[in-house]
Design a protein around this nucleic acid. Sequence first.
DNA 1: GAGATTTGACCGTC
DNA 2: GACGGTCAAATCTC
Length: 225
Amino acid sequence: MPRWTQKVQVAPGAGVEAHADGYSWRKYGQKDILGATYPRGYYRCTHRRSQGCLATKQVQRSDEDPTILEVAYKGMHTCSLGAKKDPKTAMDQEPNIAEKPQQILPQSHQSQPELLDFQTTDLDTKNETLQPLNNNPSSSSSRIIPENDVFSAEMMDTNIYYPSFMSSEPNYLTFLPSFMNGDYGSSSNIVHTSQSNAQTVGIDYPFGQLDLDSNFPFDNPRYFP
DNA sequence: GAGATTTGACCGTC
DNA sequence: GACGGTCAAATCTC
């Protein structure tokens, strides 16, 4: 099943639960994965029973860097939390897309365009690793929103939003749940987000923000050639 | 007592 | 048969 993955940096020693992304998750399993040092945790939306929300995620600590959590989202939120249309309340959620991310960027970040410089080092993998081009310590915490890249003008025009990685280019998205929540001091920081299967984008869009029934451009050849 | 977590068992796929 | 994903009973926490 195609899915979306994120790499989230947490404080050393913090548990995988440190990856609080704004949704309520219930752990339903844990497995030791072959070749992996750390077990993989399986989570589903708390509202699965009450609202039939089918969103799930898998959280696994990186072998290379235990402070990195690799979070794979599967399915999308159909619960009231994930499907909220109110942009004001939606901003309190994560990883839902902010409507106008540049408006929530603190001045300190808007004035640091250099932090938006990323390069993809392994585009051939489904979970490519991104490296900041600079060694600015502040960039390691990835409090970055590439405002010119996260949303396209096309989506803005239609009042629906998609990150640039939904385009045909193997781009990348960096956004922060805690950042969007205004919690700039959170220990949980997304350092990378990638998409494992561009062909099925939308079906497994994890953020629960798009109204697939009425707004998502299924007939747009850009996404479904 | 309700809801969340743990963990062994079960199932599907390769 | 190995492995990954899910189930469900037992246990824990508030």
